[in-house]
Every structure is written in structure tokens, then in C-alpha cells.
Design a protein around this nucleic acid. Structure first.
Lengths: 240, 240
DNA sequence: GCCGATTTGTCCGTATGTATC
DNA sequence: CGATACATACGGACAAATCGG
């Protein structure tokens, strides 16, 4: 799958860092050393390393070397700076999951929907509400809208499994960029109906817009999370 | 300030996108065109564009061009995928701010603190609690710990202004990487004492570790936000 | 403090591959 | 098929930071 050279190098380094062959706070081999190890140009090494830096695995220090700053995490967490589906992150954490589709409809975007989601007015959409269970606990209420023209043939059955799997494998569509916004909102009746909130009166809400490889926004999602099982991770680098 | 060529190009493009000279959904000039515009190599252009893609401003489409996917935001928001201080984001949004330092102490990290923060046991630390006001509303309770050896001479007065300004301008230290974790937590008595939570019983909590240019973790922060004024933005790209 | 070796940062020119139109 | 546009890769040059002698 990774036919690009820099990517195989990236993955190899990442694996060695995660297995602590290159431990926390140590320096990676120098770029010139890695050039001979991987038999490639310095630019290719630099590309792989900068990808690692983006993901918060390493930090490069001018004149000194590239230091590993990755520390293994214990807790189940969502998305370390990438796009990952519910199912994928569950598998990564070895958890049992279930999904209930509580609503599946086809709608046309009116003014209000368009303003909220970013879809053009009059877009034909699938509207889906799902409850996500992890180890038999209802943790997430997902509201998805998909552009019918881009994601044709969506069914309730597919929604019960993994929509992303369908989109990528069946439709062969590449998902590229996702813009997300995290807020905390008051619980609604719907939330209380489907999720066990104990006595929390609010939820963590992630709303997102996803673009495909044609630059078309084809998905709007709102993920409403039960507060005590929610964790969102992120790495940032300062722009001078 | 931006002495690097790719960075001036990056900033110029960013400005043109934000001012909608290059509007949403349009294509940027092709790489070869920009090579003649900015009088540089294609690599330099690509570097600038890939930076924009990382920040969610554009998306490049193989064989077609580079599409603008930036949309202006209305709401006051914190950090669009970067490291930004409270003061910086306030200024960016043209808001009036105030900071109350409610606690300023020097402590030594015991086992428990070390385990929570990631500092080594026995580290000498500054411990700071601050309440942040935006337009006279108490929005954030900040708990900071700084490594004394890396951030010497910190005072209550500096904490009342901007610690990052002190670190970067006075100490000349470069802040590079920040790892953050977002969760939602139940409100504590301290939270209720300092923040007006209305009847929210939880808060948005961002905990983070910051590394300087030497790869040393010099800061641990916990930012406890009043839910109704909290927004966190993020852009992700899918790794194939 | 200076000098040289090492290491990362920036930039260029070029070649080739691949997707789009 | 050819032209255009982005993607990957190479090799080389010089700058800037770090470190040891």
C-alpha cells in the first residue's frame, strides 16, 4: 500500500519509536546516517521525519539532532491528530462495539439546514442518527448528513456497519480533509433518551465537515459524546 | 521576521485567502504560475502550499489544482490548530481581557505530581493558578506549572500579564511543540468558586505539555473552560 | 574565544511519475 | 494523445546552530 518511499520510511521509524527501539528523549540517527540506512536522498528522510514531527512523535533540534518525544498512552483515546472512524479507534483499542441506527431518512436541505451544515440549499441529503456502543455502554450519539450525489446507495444496513468503509472500499472515494470543531453543549432530551448521562447535564460535541479528493464537502457530522469516556488528543507546533 | 522565503509566501497566500481574494472553492494559481509570481523554485511554493493544507486552508487535487476550502468563522474561537496564548487569541478577536493570579507558589514535584504532569520527581516548579476574564466574564481557570530551571525569574506580575511573552521575548526561548488532551470534567468547588458556571455541572478541560527548542518539557498546563464560551478547532488529513 | 566537524534548515534545478482535462 | 498540474525523488549548495578541542 505505501508505495511512496518517504512513507515506508515514516512507518518504519514510527514503529521503532512506538516499540521504544528509539526511546523517549533519545536522538534519532542523523539524517546522513539514515540516508545510507534507507538508501535514499536526504530530502526523502526529511519528509518522513517532518511527518513524524507533525504527529508529535519527534522534535527536531537545529544543530543537534531529532529527539523522540513520543510517550505511550494508557487510556483509550480518540484520534491522535488524524481522521479515524469510530470502528477504527475501537479496533485499535481492542473494544467490542455496536451501532444502532435510530433514524435513517432522505431530506432536502432548507435554509436552516444549509446554514448549519455548510451544504448548499436544496441539496439532497441522507440524514442518519446512530447510537454507538462500546462494551455495551451507549457512549455516542452521531448525527450524519451525506450528500446523496457523492455517496449514492447508502442504506440503513451500511449505516449499521461502517459508512467510511463503504465510502472508501465500495465507492472508491478518497477522504482527504476534515475540519472539526469541539464544543460542550447542554444535554437535550434526545441525548438523555439514548445515552446514559448519569447526572452530567452536558456533552462533548464534535461537529465536522469532510471533503473528498474532489474538494467537495460531502459529509456533515455531529458527534455527541458522553463526557466521562471522551478524550481528544492533539499535537501542535508553534508558528513563529 | 519571516526571513524564510517559503514563510513569506505562506503568509501572503494566507492573507489573500482570508481576504477572499482567493475565494472559497476556487483554485489557486498553478504551482508553475506561482513560481514566476514569487520568483522561486517549485519546491518552495510546494512547501508554502503544504503548510496551508495542514492548517485547513486549502486542499490540493492531483492533476487539477489547489482548492481553497477556508471559510471565515464568526464565533470567537480558540486556536486554529496552533499554539496560541489566551492573550493572542483575545487580541485576534478584538476582545478586552483581564487576568487574576489567585495563587503563585514554588513547589517541588512529589510522586503524585510527577505522575500527573510528566515532570521528573523532585523537579523545582512554579505553581500558578489564574482566572481569565474576557469582556469581564470569568471564563477560564488556568493551572500552570513551569520548570524553574528553564523559566527562571517568573513573578506574580509576569503571570498577571502574559507568561508566553516573557518566555519568548525576555528569555528568548523558542516554544516548539505542544501535546494537548481535551476532556470534559465535572466541576469542582474551585471551579465554582471562580467561574460563573450558571447551572452547568462540568467544564471543558485542556491539559497540555509544552516542549522548548531543546526538547525539554518545561510546562504543564490545565485550562478549565466555562462550557458555553469554549470552542476548539482542528483540521485533520487522512493518512492513507 | 576561535575553528572545524557535525547536524539540521532552506533553497534550487531537474527528472520522472501520475492524474486530469 | 498531448498539455497541464500535482507528487515523488534525487543531488547539490549554502546557511545556521551545536559541540568539542
Amino acid at each position: 500500500m505505501p508505495k511512496a518511499k518517504f512513507e515506508t520510511i515514516y512507518k518504519d521509524l514510527k514503529k521503532k519509536i512506538e516499540s521504544q527501539e528509539y526511546p523517549y528523549q533519545e536522538l534519532l540517527p542523523s539524517e546522513n546516517t539514515m540516508v545510507t540506512i534507507y538508501d535514499c536522498s536526504r530530502n526523502t528522510i526529511r519528509r518522513a521525519v517532518s511527518e513524524l514531527a507533525e504527529q508529535g512523535y519527534v522534535q527536531s533540534l537545529h544543530g543537534k539532532g531529532v529527539r523522540v518525544i513520543y510517550q505511550p498512552v494508557d487510556q483509550a483515546s480518540f484520534t491522535i491528530g488524524g481522521i479515524e472512524s469510530f470502528k477504527e479507534s475501537a479496533v485499535r483499542n481492542h473494544k467490542r462495539t455496536r451501532t444502532d441506527v435510530v433514524r435513517f431518512a432522505e431530506i432536502t436541505a432548507d435554509e436552516r439546514v444549509a446554514a448549519n451544515t455548510g451544504f448548499p440549499v436544496m441539496s439532497e441529503l441522507y440524514y442518519i442518527q446512530r447510537v454507538r456502543y462500546l462494551e455495551d455502554k451507549a457512549l455516542i450519539l452521531d448525527i450524519n448528513m451525506f450528500l446523496k450525489s457523492e455517496v449514492p446507495g447508502l442504506t440503513k444496513e451500511i449505516a449499521g456497519n461502517s459508512i467510511y468503509e463503504y465510502i472508501e472500499n465500495e465507492l472508491g472515494m478518497a477522504i482527504v480533509t476534515s475540519k472539526r470543531k469541539m464544543t460542550v453543549e447542554r444535554a437535550t432530551e434526545i441525548d438523555e433518551k439514548y445515552l446514559e448521562l448519569n447526572d452530567y447535564n452536558c456533552l462533548a460535541v464534535i461537529t465536522g465537515q469532510t471533503y473528498n479528493a474532489d474538494g467537495i464537502m460531502f459529509e456533515y457530522t455531529q458527534s455527541r459524546h458522553r463526557p466521562d469516556y471522551f478524550c481528544f488528543q492533539d499535537t501542535a507546533t508553534r508558528k513563529r
